[in-house]
Design a protein around this nucleic acid. Sequence first.
DNA 1: TGTATAAATGAACAACTGTTCATAAGTTTG
DNA 2: CAAACTTATGAACAGTTGTTCATTTATACA
Lengths: 106, 106
Amino acid sequence: MTATPAATVDMGLDIEKMEKVAFILKTTAHPTRIAIVQLLAANDQLSVSDISERLRVEQSLLSHHLSGMKLKGILSSTREGKNIYYALKMREVIDVIQCLAACTFL
Amino acid sequence: MTATPAATVDMGLDIEKMEKVAFILKTTAHPTRIAIVQLLAANDQLSVSDISERLRVEQSLLSHHLSGMKLKGILSSTREGKNIYYALKMREVIDVIQCLAACTFL
DNA sequence: TGTATAAATGAACAACTGTTCATAAGTTTG
DNA sequence: CAAACTTATGAACAGTTGTTCATTTATACA
């Protein structure tokens, strides 16, 4: 990791908040992963092949993204028969994305 | 770069918006750089040494961060005598950070 | 049991990031 | 001009990321 700069300058974002947001952003700021979050925000659980079809992302690559996100605590997964269903675990991620979606100026 | 997934699933975040936000986030989601943005949101221009002192980040490293951010269009710089002053160029960055700061839930 | 289907895993690799260190380049002032 | 100061630059390097491909594991079902 990186050393945190000393000053706590702020606009309402204290260090702790800043690091949490940075974490969420770093692990989510990628087109495929944002799309995954959006899908799971709307669907509350989906199998890998569901996601793969909808996003047209190849199985293996998708799996890597999913397990990475799971590892970082953003998603959870449960097996049901042949399929494995992923769901959003860290709800703050939705909030962050919704927050950004609400930013009209962009 | 990465291929954009096909589906435009959304929560109000269309693909274009999503990519702009992702860009801003990727280039900003780092403690030092967030701190820089915050400083420059509050000060509208600061010399490298100002920033270096306030954030206690070493000259060369800071310079790398700054010129990277400039390269990506986030900051601008102008020389005034010995000093070089950096300023926020892409104002949306402030908006994004303020937007996130407003998210109380975190 | 064998075959099909769903998903994970691991190697390999290129590209990018963050960092440090040493050095260069531009500016001011004596 | 030389010395001091401020900032940039470039090499080097370790670590991370995104991706592909081939292989493996797990489950279901004939």
